[in-house]
């Protein structure tokens, strides 16, 4: 039979019949991955490639799919967990603290009890340097104390801060709030005290023992 030349562009000769294509590929599917004792590397490589791609896919989706939230449009964003961050008014918080605890001694009027509990209204301690005031609440106060040239010595101020021997273990936020409250109540007109100021004092003084008037007057 005359063979057509293979390079005639008018006809591509076939190198295999349809039957042969079907039969031999059917056979190829049934082959075992390992050929006798010689293990082929390609199946392992393909397995690792697919696993690697799936690992990438899972990692990427976990990182950038925003938990499939329909409300997140930025791929770096995360869906809201429903928690709402509310900014608390320190005066309101301080009032709450004062009415729960401090009011017992210092009274609702902020006037204290003559000779026993010193007043807060108009007190030079309350309206004085904030560091001193913070120290009193953080570490408590023992012994005689002079307020507006009256002497108070019958009672002691308990330890409120998160320090050794604390009776109340209030955190810095609470202390700042209650001090801010007393500094603007009953006609007092001093500025607020922040939680950062309180923690700065607490960190610099460490576990100080209870304050006394002399120690307080010495500190600036």
């Amino acid at each position: 039979m005359s063979q057509k030349p293979d390079n005639d562009p008018r006809l591509d000769q076939a190198a295999a019949s349809d039957d042969a294509v079907l039969a031999l590929h059917e056979k190829a599917i049934g082959e075992h991955p390992d050929n006798g004792a010689r293990y082929r590397l390609l199946p392992i490589f393909i397995l690792f490639t697919l696993s690697g791609l799936i690992l990438f896919a899972g990692t990427y989706l976990n990182r950038y799919a925003a938990h499939y939230s329909p409300l997140v449009f930025n791929e770096n964003g995360k869906p809201s967990t429903g928690e709402v961050v509310v900014k608390i008014d320190p005066v309101a918080l301080g009032k709450k603290q004062f009415e729960a605890v401090c009011i017992t001694c210092h009274q609702a009027t902020g006037m204290g009890v003559a000779g026993i509990y010193p007043p807060l209204a108009g007190s030079e301690w309350v309206n004085g340097p904030s560091k001193r005031l913070i120290e009193i609440v953080l570490y408590g106060l023992k012994g005689e104390v002079h307020v507006e040239s009256h002497v108070y010595s019958a009672a002691a101020m308990p330890v409120f801060g998160q320090v050794a021997g604390s009776a109340y273990n209030w955190n810095d936020d609470r202390i700042a709030a209650v001090l801010t409250y007393v500094r603007q109540e009953w006609g007092n007109k001093s500025g607020p005290i922040s939680a950062d100021e309180v923690s700065a004092v607490r960190k610099s003084m460490g576990d100080h023992k209870e304050m006394s008037e002399d120690v307080l007057m010495a500190s600036k």
């Binding site: 490639t49 697919l50 791609l53 799936i54 990438f56 896919a57 990427y60 989706l61 950038y64 799919a65 925003a66 938990h67 499939y68 939230s69 329909p70 409300l71 997140v72 449009f73 930025n74 791929e75 964003g77």
Partner: peptide, 20 residues
Amino acid sequence: GPVPAWIPALAVVSCALLLF
């Protein structure tokens, strides 16, 4: 675009898997 972020993220992953 203005679509939930998971849709483009899924497309990125699918394009990569399609490389297989």
